[in-house]
Design a protein around this nucleic acid. Structure first.
Length: 222
DNA sequence: GGCCAGGACACCA
DNA sequence: TGGTGTCATGGC
């Protein structure tokens, strides 16, 4: 980004994460549709297992809206078996395909032309698309500024003393959106960096010596 | 063998 | 409105 760094505490956290990990180049997908499918498959699943399922969908040539709309749900569940909750996720993918077919005839450019807030509301009406999944789609597939809150974000900001951990999803989302410029590359990178940091071993145990947020973390040191 | 991983939904008090 | 059970595989 060739823009001024974001200000305030949230900007400071972002700068530390970016300095520690560098750009994350998210979302790891080749197309916006792949982002949408990945956003569902990654629900409570490790990304390595999601990649296997994505590859199975590619090999079966069903990683597009029209094919996903046509495929049998049982067959679909077999293809996404590796990432767990395979029956539930097959149902969610079929719901997504049905929504795309009915709302825009599978034309994502048409769908993504909808205003950000309205797009988010429409996505939330689809079975299987909760707030995090919908925001991931809005940000990473539609390229619109909607901050994604996940378990890592909640945990990291609780430990920083910037959140209680009991806020609703929308309350925590507002914390970011009210204190950061509505900038897609910034939202993209910030969420990716939080996930990257959250996966670090130092984030899963008492504060460790090399944590990039060590001097502002409220956790007791080792 | 147990825990966790880039959640969401259904049901109940 | 908030809490709890359920969905389920794979890696460590």
């Amino acid at each position: 980004m060739d823009k001024a760094p974001p200000a305030g505490v949230l900007g400071s956290v972002y700068q530390r994460l970016l300095a520690a990990y560098g750009s994350q180049h998210w979302w790891p997908a080749e197309t916006p549709f792949e982002v949408m499918v990945g956003a569902i498959l990654t629900q409570s699943a490790a990304w390595t297992n999601v990649e296997k399922a994505i590859n199975c969908l590619k090999e079966a040539d069903v990683l597009n809206a029209a094919a996903l709309y046509r495929i049998n749900e049982t067959e679909l569940s077999r293809l996404v078996y590796s990432c767990g909750y395979f029956r539930a996720k097959a149902r969610k993918l079929k719901a997504l395909a049905g929504f795309l077919e009915e709302s825009c005839g599978g034309d994502l450019e048409k769908l993504f032309a909808i205003e950000t807030g309205e797009l988010r509301r429409q996505l939330l009406s689809v079975h299987g698309l909760g707030p995090e999944t919908a925001d991931s789609i809005v940000l990473y597939a539609a390229d619109k500024p909607s901050f994604v809150i996940d378990a890592y974000t909640r945990r990291i900001f609780s430990r920083l003393g910037l959140a209680s951990g009991k806020e609703s999803y929308d309350e925590l989302k507002r914390l970011f959106e009210n204190n950061l410029p509505a900038d897609v590359p910034l939202f993209n990178e910030y969420h990716a960096l939080l996930v990257r940091h959250g996966k670090d071993a130092c984030c899963k145990r008492p504060l460790c010596a090399d944590c990039c947020l060590r001097d502002i973390c409220k956790r007791p040191p080792i």
